[in-house]
Amino acid sequence: MSMAEAQTRTTELPEVADPSRVAPQDARELSKLFFQQLAILEEGTPEHQYARNTLIEMNMSLVRFAAGRFRSRGPEEMEDIVQVGMIGLIKAIDRFELSREVEFTSFAIPYIVGEIKRFFRDTTWAVHVPRRLQEARVQLARATEELRSRLGRTPTVKELSELMSLPEEEVREARLAANGYNSSSLDATINGSEDGEAALQDFIGTPDTDLELVEDFHALAPLIAELEQRDRQIIHMRFVEELTQAQIGERLGVSQMHVSRLLSRTLARLREGMLTTS
């Protein structure tokens, strides 16, 4: 397409007075039009910049949604979180292609959440703590809250160890590691703890599991879209229709063993994609 044709097409873009106030449903439809134009406009031109800036402002609600899980943090830190999330949104806009045949929302959320998670990994810990213990801290917080709701008291290390399927020593290490999350006093413990080691950080700011489920869904959507037709079909039959491997094999005309190999390969690819995204 010539530059003249591209400029003619540019005039089709609607004027959006305040993109940040466009309703999410309208933003989805308008975004498709703007992405079509962005793909044919020359980078660096005023038209290209207008389309890109409008896309950023129209989809800021995605950043606010992703940042919502951290609403228990102070206003100043929330401002930083939103700014970091905006970086993820911009990366998603610059890398999105309509040919992917996935909704931009599904494509952008993993980028936004990924940037926020990297921000916390890089800046939140007051001292260096191994990644294994950082992850154990989150697991510990969930297990502590679950047992505290069930038992009506603070759980012991032994009870946490059984629920988390971890040795008691690793549970203690995770509790100690939580003291490195913020630069607060190491003596700040929760009253009523039986062994006196439970830090305040173990009991506050636990992740919203419902939002995490939404994030996982959005992260998986573009990965599944990239699979071959047969692999997507197998995933659908196994996890949506809940068919056994033998039943899937009968439908596809292959052996159960072959279905097992295909399923294992596909799940490994999806897991790798999820880890790369996060």
Rank of each mutant, 00 (worst) to 15 (best):
A4S: 05
E159P: 04
T123K: 13
A199I: 04
E103D: 08
P207C: 09
T266Y: 08
R271Q: 15
K32G: 01
I87S: 06
E97R: 12
S183H: 09
L55H: 00
A92Q: 01
M58P: 04
P46G: 10
Q245T: 14
R230M: 09
F203G: 10
D122F: 07
A67I: 03
T189H: 13
T189M: 09
N182G: 03
L220W: 07
I87V: 09
A39K: 11
I87R: 07
L89K: 03
S255F: 04
A17L: 12
P24T: 00
Q256H: 11
Q83I: 09
A219T: 11
T45A: 03
I224R: 03
S255N: 02
E145W: 09
T277S: 14
E169P: 04
E77C: 02
S278C: 07
F104E: 00
Q134R: 14
T209Y: 14
D26Q: 15
D202Q: 14
V129D: 10
Y50Q: 10
E79R: 10
Q83R: 15
R131Y: 13
A141Y: 01
M164T: 12
E212H: 12
L89Q: 02
F217G: 05
L200C: 08
T45L: 01
S260L: 01
I116R: 00
E42I: 04
F120C: 09
L151C: 11
M86T: 05
M3V: 05
L213S: 13
E242L: 10
P207R: 15
R142H: 12
S72M: 11
E29Q: 05
T8W: 08
S185F: 08
D210T: 15
S31R: 02
E42F: 01
I248G: 00
L38T: 01
N59G: 01
D94Y: 02
S193K: 07
K158P: 02
S278I: 05
S72G: 05
K91V: 02
I190V: 15
R153Y: 09
L13Q: 05
G85R: 00
V129I: 15
S106R: 02
V259I: 15
Q36S: 10
E226W: 05
N182Q: 08
S31M: 00
E162M: 13
D216K: 08
E47D: 15
E29S: 07
F65C: 01
E12G: 01
F203M: 10
E173H: 13
G74Q: 07
E250F: 03
L211K: 13
R142P: 02
P75H: 05
L151S: 11
T154A: 15
L160W: 01
P207A: 10
R73C: 03
Q247A: 12
